[in-house]
Design a protein around this nucleic acid. Structure first.
Lengths: 165, 165
DNA sequence: GCAGAATAGTTACATATCTAAGTAAATCAA
DNA sequence: TTGATTTACTTAGATATGTAACTATTCTGC
């Protein structure tokens, strides 16, 4: 049963402000805009940023693993990597052991720009959490994590279309 | 100063899971997928759904006001309304008093489908908040609301390009 | 070893969303 | 009352993102 967790009156969700989906969308959009406002002048779009962040942490991933960590579908990754390659931030290298796999490596330019981009996300997160105690910020992360987990199976079923029934 | 709210160590945000922007994006995406999984069989996309929800609450809004309430830019609204009009869910009516304005009205079909769509969002929200107490769910809403407000000015400056400096 | 299944990546195409720039109508200021 | 400004909407064009379907490669079970 799921009925004892939240007011289940349908009219409650008729108002967007009560809907967690709406709140997550607006919060995400405000984050994106605030971040892109800072990174676009440096020539990096929000889409590129998401991949760079993962690659700064670990270089040489396959495209599939990269997709998983960034949280995007693979065709989205293909497009994003094309733009990153064109911008000179990555190079793609066929894997010798398994020729299906392409590994993605950062260029020096991408490493150089990291220290100018990380402060952007620090600043945006600081601004976003202004007035929140560290405890509250952590609560927010934890609660979002639980919501994400609760919906993960649903989100995945679209992906693994073979698993249906 | 904003430094006393959250761990400001840049490397902290190198990991997506620590970044509120990432968490909001994944949460939003999981919501979207879970919701669309239920509404698409009824012929309604997530984009259409967002506008319908606002119109169910109040009919006859101008496109600008509708954009504001849904949280989309106006060109997005134009596209969405075109698809809603084509699907037979809205009609647009020029305002007699101010001919710049177009008012948007629901058709009977849109009213009929409301009672089949609202349960979808109720179900998705129930699933999302499973294991959360009502208090925690409200905390999450409140915290998201504060983050949204903190970033709202940033998000708006892009919009009112005349205000620059 | 080979046929069929699984895996990695890509292409093709559809939506959704945005910014920038354009049009038409209303308002304001002289 | 007319020129400049503002407002409401639209168009044009870019980016991001997704699903479905395709190719190439590898693995698996006989």
């Amino acid at each position: 049963m799921t009925a004892d967790t939240t007011p289940p009156d349908p009219s409650f969700y008729a108002h967007p402000e009560n809907s967690l989906g709406y709140l997550c969308r607006i919060a995400f959009r405000n984050f994106s805009r605030a971040l892109e406002k800072r990174t676009l002048p440096l020539g990096v779009t929000a889409g590129q940023w998401r991949f760079l962040r993962v690659l700064w942490a670990e270089d040489g991933l396959s495209q599939r693993e990269l997709s998983r960590r960034v949280g995007m579908r693979e065709p989205t990754t293909v497009v994003a990597l094309k733009s990153l390659e064109k911008a000179g931030y990555i190079r793609r290298e066929p894997n010798a052991a398994d020729r299906r796999v392409t590994n993605v490596f950062l260029t020096q330019a991408a490493r150089d720009i990291e220290e100018r981009l990380l402060p952007c996300v620090v600043e945006v997160n600081a601004m976003a959490t202004e007035g929140l105690t560290p405890t509250e910020a952590n609560q927010l992360r934890a609660l979002l994590g639980r919501v994400i987990d609760n919906l993960q199976d649903e989100a995945d079923t679209v992906l693994r279309r073979a698993g249906g029934e």
